[in-house]
Amino acid sequence: MDAIIENLPVFLEGFRNTLSLLAIAGIGALVLGIILAAMRISPVASFRGFATVYTELVRNTPLTLVLFFCAYLLPYLQFSPGYFTLAAIGLTVYTSPFIAEALRSGINGVPLGQAEAARSIGLTFGQTLSFIIMPQAVRMVIPPLINVFIALTKNTSVAGAFFVFELFGAARKITNLRGDEVLAILLAVAVFYLIITIPLGLIAGKIERKVTVLR
């Protein structure tokens, strides 16, 4: 137990880095995912094709490979803004197609009749989108989006294996120092992850139940 108490600052630094990695990669992936989702549902065939190919390729590439590329090969190609930034880029790229898929399924999940009714009473495209489709789509999209963010939280641990000092990196460092209390240290790190993931999961579940009641 004393291994945890005396190393608490190290844990907290790791936790802070995990949170900032989560925030930066989360926002980046959200922006990229919105662009991809827009391309995916656009009437222009070539944009649709590009977004589909990108989604399929990235979703079928292991995260470890993406982060390996960022941590080893991008510096070799003389692009080296530091390992934290590189890991954030990798996580952004890896997460964006999952966000795009969640958004797309939400928008396609709005019944066709809703949009047809909106158009037939004379609403413009912008009005249809902002008054009819989006309010319904956003509600359906939020639970799967939260699940993507939970997965992202857990995925930030892979960055710890590629020279970023976050919770997993902290776990490795402290277990090296204190080999006698490995179990307690790893449980403490797990608790830090659960502090993020379990509340997010509860919120997602709550929203999901609320939405299904409304429908």
């Binding site: 641990s157 892979v158 776990a171 179990l183 790893l186 797990a190 992850y193 659960l194 379990i198 999961g201």
Partner: peptide, 17 residues
């Protein structure tokens, strides 16, 4: 507990413990 924890951490955990 298992679902909220990164797989990587679990691997390290099992390897070390």
């Amino acid at each position: 507990f298992v679902r909220g924890m990164p797989v990587l951490l679990m691997m390290l955990f099992i390897l070390l413990v």
